[in-house]
Design a binder for these strands. Structure first.
Lengths: 223, 223
DNA sequence: GTCTATACCGCGATAGAC
DNA sequence: GTCTATCGCGGTATAGAC
């Protein structure tokens, strides 16, 4: 049992450190192959044989690196989830300082929608939702990094706008959820059940814009 | 190959007629056991052995009735999905005639939320989402009977209200999606990633009421 | 229609040479 | 670290008696 092999991060997902050097390339190949396999088949139907075949290494090597199918799944999905959604981090910080609030909200929600609606992110989301009972840690991780439920920076920005009088938001946490639901949530729901649906750019802009208008009609001050 | 064994309904889901009599009880036991097993384990990890054990019949009987794991899954999930969401059918018909529009919208969305947020319905939803790639028919079926994406009656009601001048709704289809997203969608999203979260009745009323207010702030006429 | 028993396969995980 | 070869188990589906 190597040192640090059972370390868990704040979300209960095993941290498997990547060794530098020649083995690192094989490790990368395993991770890539595993992600493809898990996204295509789901956790249970995914085969470790298929992962080894796709990655070009032997099965023993896979187990030397990750120990078990469950640890491989958590490491791979957790990593890609963190990386993919890292773009969402600097979310609502520019909102409070923006001259035109509507434009700022449209830009914020549109940027988020572009990322969250990407086919690979949607597939990852479906996989996480389907395996929630088996891996509750991934659900908690998705909520935090993807801000699918709570968005800290956005809540803070709405609170600041309320204090300044630019908006009248009695419950910023609820308002943030409503804004996200009325904008990103609408096309996201459609694509959740229709993976093959295309993203019409003009339609997306129209939906997002209408959602922001919905939000502002309720929370904008007369000023 | 019995007659009608390969009949498909409008959604591409096999229709397996239930014979009346003594065998009907066994069939019911199989369906109940299979639903429990699939909801608990997902499609791939679900075991036909576990289904037979839970239902108290032999494995051969299960295969005599349903032919394969795939057909059993489609039949069971499709049936329960239709039955569960049948309560949602008479959706927006009473809206247009209601004296108090806000109360009517709150009642409509609250009723829907109560059904869609039930733990068993949420679990079914997670299962369908996770198996969308394998069974696209279930995604299409969910969209229709659950009105998770499009709600025909609600769209018609909004169109009528717009024509009468009670609301100003330029795009009823989009408005219907926004109403659902801003009300039911908010707690639904939370519980999608947190199966164990409880439904606080007071909190639900507050969220739904706020969502309806959001909707009316945008679409209500001055009158 | 229903049962018991089993064919047959692919799975996750490991042993031991190098 | 990496390989080949294999173990043991549990999976779906079927055969044949009743």
């Amino acid at each position: 049992m190597a040192a640090g092999k059972d370390d868990l991060d704040a979300y209960g997902i095993p941290v498997v450190p990547a060794p530098a050097g020649a083995a690192s390339r094989k490790r990368r190949a395993i991770v890539d192959a595993a992600l493809t396999e898990f996204l295509a088949e789901g956790y249970s139907a995914a085969s470790m044989d298929a992962v080894t075949a796709r990655s070009g290494v032997s099965k023993a090597t896979v187990y030397k690196h990750f120990g078990s199918k469950e640890r491989l799944f958590l490491a791979v999905i957790g990593d890609v989830l963190r990386k993919t959604c890292a773009d969402l981090e600097p979310a609502g910080q520019a909102i409070a300082a923006a001259p035109d609030l509507r434009s700022a909200l449209v830009r914020l929600t549109t940027d988020r929608a572009r990322i969250l609606l990407r086919p690979d992110v949607m597939a990852l989301r479906r996989l996480v939702i389907g395996e929630i009972d088996r891996f509750p840690q991934l659900g908690r991780l998705w909520c935090r990094v993807g801000h699918d439920v709570d968005d800290g920076p956005l809540v803070e920005a709405l609170t600041a706008l309320d204090a300044r009088g630019d908006l009248a938001v009695p419950d910023p946490k609820l308002a943030a959820r409503q804004l996200v639901a009325a904008t990103v949530g609408v096309p996201q729901l459609v694509r959740t059940f229709s993976p093959e649906a295309e993203i019409d750019e003009a339609e997306l802009e129209r939906v997002i814009g209408s959602g922001v208008d919905l939000f502002l009609a309720r929370y904008a001050t007369g000023a």
